[in-house]
């Protein structure tokens, strides 16, 4: 649970046009690898951990964006496990899940929020 008293620290990630439409990139923030996605089709930005929890591969930024019903998701390129971009929950019924991060865009710069 997020603690209401912690403040979000907004870290600059990259420029908007560094991220391919409907695709992802990997951002290095401090020592963490974060996958940042521009879901252009939905007009939405998302960020999750870059490591797929299934086989611990640093690969989610190279995955495929998509939707299941209306839930936006990212699918890992390794074994096609899908995760909700909103909650990080695994959509294939597995127990593992992703950490998600807030994203904001200001003046063509993308920022990722760390706690």
């Amino acid at each position: 649970m997020s603690n209401p008293t912690t403040t979000i620290q907004w870290m600059p990630a990259c420029r908007v046009d560094d991220v391919p439409s409907n695709g992802g990139v990997c951002v290095k923030l401090e020592e963490e690898q974060i996958a940042l996605y521009h879901f252009t089709r939905r007009g939405e930005w998302y960020a999750t951990q870059n490591e797929c929890p299934h086989r611990k591969q640093m690969a989610l930024s190279r995955g495929l964006l998509g939707s299941q019903a209306d839930e936006p998701k990212i699918t890992c390129p390794f074994h096609k496990k899908s995760f909700s971009l909103r909650t990080g929950e695994c959509l294939n019924g597995d127990e593992c899940s992703l950490r998600t991060y807030p994203v904001k865009v200001e003046e063509a710069m993308v920022y990722i929020g760390l706690e």
Partner: peptide
């Protein structure tokens, strides 16, 4: 480009470890 499966997207075969 971003609709290609991982191997086609980077024109190479992704292997263990990335």
């Amino acid at each position: 480009d971003t609709a290609q499966d991982s191997n086609d997207r980077f024109l190479a075969n992704i292997q263990k470890g990335g």
